[in-house]
Write a protein that binds this DNA or RNA. Structure first.
Lengths: 138, 138
DNA sequence: CTAGATATCTCCAGAGACTATAGGTTTGGA
DNA sequence: TCCAAACCTATAGTCTCTGGAGATATCTAG
């Protein structure tokens, strides 16, 4: 049996975060030692690794909760699982698109500023003040 | 003079958000009507548009606070302004990089799932469970 | 001028996903 | 056996808003 600290070291998830996941219902309430400390078995380690991996991929807590619930019915068809992942892929793509537009605009703003003139004339400040200087909508 | 609702309509910033910006020190405390309601002048409109624009670009409140402070000394050189914008550009680029890696991995996971088999065998679930199935580090 | 509708005021709580602190208890090794 | 490290619970804070409650102000129609 692993202590919460052991589990933390093995998964890279911080101790308070593990307790938080338990509170949020992603991890089952752990067994306890005689002195009331949490003790974990291998399944808990796997479950936490699953959660960690899903979080790293940017899935939010409620999506993960749903995936866990689905994974406990292994003989059902996996359409919902696929949908969750595909939806998330779409939202990641949307975010990338938005950030690329930001990148372009920031680039445009920054490259017109040599950092060596007065704030009064600074393109960065002027761009922020005047939306009309933007190329694209946002 | 504009009411807070007028200002909201003109800038697209919600009323409670305007009050929040005032509380955070981005907007000066507004003048008040006899009945204690906020009244805004044209400068406030411009300032709020500046804030909105900077937020749309992803700059955080403290960066905006700093930019506003700098913009009030128009005769100083603009090196710091440039630095804030350039730092932000870098962080946007970093975010894009990370998201692209996620995109790749999610794509890989999703395309191997046809949504038409059992959860037991689902590649999405298996990928999340087993980090070893990933192509790249993350 | 007054009634009623709309807008505003302040204060407080909640969102999401943690993170940190305080004050106390248990555990593991020398 | 003793002590430091790890653990426990409970609570509050992070960041950027957003929404609600209950009270007050302003505007419009009659």
């Amino acid at each position: 049996m692993l202590s919460i600290g052991d589990l933390s070291k093995r998964t890279g998830v911080k101790v308070p975060t593990i307790r938080y996941y338990e509170q949020m219902g992603l991890l089952a309430a752990a067994e306890r030692s005689e002195g009331n400390q949490r003790r974990y078995a291998r399944q808990d380690l796997e479950r936490l690794a699953f959660i960690r991996h899903a979080r790293d991929l940017g899935l939010d807590i409620s999506a993960i909760r749903e995936l866990i619930a689905l994974s406990q019915h292994p003989h059902q068809p996996c359409g919902n699982v696929d949908r969750i992942a595909a939806d998330h892929l779409k939202s990641v793509r949307d975010k990338i698109e938005k950030l690329k537009k930001l990148e372009e605009e920031l680039e445009r703003i920054v490259t017109r500023c040599d950092g060596d003139h007065s704030i009064e004339d600074c393109y960065v400040i002027r761009s922020l003040s005047d939306h009309g200087l933007c190329d694209s909508e946002h």
